[in-house]
Design a protein around this nucleic acid. Sequence first.
DNA 1: CCAGAGATAGGCT
DNA 2: GCCTATCTCTGGG
Length: 216
Amino acid sequence: MIAPSDRTPLPREFFDRPVLEVAPDLLGRTLLRTTPDGPIALRLTEVEAYDGPNDPGSHAYRGRTPRNTVMFGPPGHVYVYFTYGMWHCMNLVCGPEGQASGVLLRAGEITEGAELARTRRLSARNDKELAKGPARLATALGVDRALDGTDACAAGDTPIRILTGTPTPPGQVRSGPRTGVAGEGGDGDAHPWRYWVADDPTVSPYRAHVPKKRRS
DNA sequence: CCAGAGATAGGCT
DNA sequence: GCCTATCTCTGGG
């Protein structure tokens, strides 16, 4: 149980930094999701950085659209997108307004409200799978486009906030290439975009991007 | 246990 | 026509 005194959200200045600084600093922090059915707390174990218009993998690469408008807004807000016709994924906007950088929340450990999360993740075979993967994480937390633009730094009983918690010590942070992003075929890109907690069982397995085969 | 195939279907080029 | 993904089924080691 999280003490009421520990429920203060991270300040907006935390997110108003270069995305490659913010991303590893988010590991170990607690995301507190407040729903009408109860709270769910998640300890972040895997994240991925997207560097706005400079980054071909970013939704903001080709400029502002109705879908990605939140990315161009102030830091500390939640960007939620719908993908593959079924799933939602959740990002935190970073850097100054207009820069359109963000951190994709890829995996975490449910530390409170697991019973509620299980009702949303019926296919999970164990609790480590509840939020192992970005769309699983959003599903477990009950996050969809209705929460796009939510201010994670607001005071009061907000639906989403990131608590200071206990950040993962730098010695426990690992980094590597992003998963599943087209155009990063392995060793070419030296940038460490993906960060995770060493040896944590809730981190999603690495999947290199595989172009779809053409039907014969 | 792992890898691959097929399905899902909105947003954007 | 591809994409910041996942589920279920199938076949191999």
